[in-house]
Amino acid sequence: MMHNFAGWAMTDRQRAQTEQAYVLHSYPYRETSLLLETFTQPYGRITMVARGARRPRSALRGVLLSFQPLSLGWFGKGEVRTLSRAEWHGGHPLLQGEALLCGFYLNELLLRLLPREDPHEVLFDHYRQALMALARSDASAVVLRGFEKALLSELGYAMTLDRDGDTGNSLDPAATYTYDPERGPVRILTDGSEVSAEPLLQGKVLLDIARDDYRDPLTLVQAKALMRVLINHRLDDQPLRSRRIFRELLAL
């Protein structure tokens, strides 16, 4: 008996993997389980079922929280894996207040833009850094812009920020540009033919974004508009829920 049991445990452990991960979102599943959308360090997004996690005394209840670094173990093949263990890693405080909304926004971006089972270790690191910065109550706008830029770049849509998308010339800090998601910065001609273009960006702002320098308030304002256009483009203009709700909350 002992031998059999040990043998079973061994093969089960071999099949199971334990990796650093975050829970992006969870949904009730069947009567007592949770369906987890996770972002794992080596494999990217993985969907897992946490069996019994909704039972009143489940030890998983307090562990499977978003925005917290976790060690998750799972086994199985196919679209939905089975969670075998979950441990809380700790290291940074829970998100509070407005930072929580920013966290939901980051998670929605990952859920909407990151394909399942696509490894993104660099992005995982950016995500971890962004959450840590939000937990430390760093300026949230700067954290969000940095993450959006990293996300676009990791998805293969790195932004051109140092030269004109049409001519290839260096950007003139004093000139006004707009941004075409496929071409990059496009200079606004002085005859005003493209003045209705969105977004309007100063050359200096684009250069600031390239260096992740957000000290200039104008850079923060215009970078937000630029990222919105680029992200909407990647989302095929399907609106983000967290953005709508953030707007509604500000109006309270």
Partner: peptide
């Protein structure tokens, strides 16, 4: 409760009624 990822915002949970 507010749940931005599920599209549940202040209107859905009646924060205006609470106010």
């Amino acid at each position: 409760r507010l749940s931005p990822l599920d599209g549940i915002g202040p209107r859905e949970i009646g924060l205006d009624v609470l106010q």
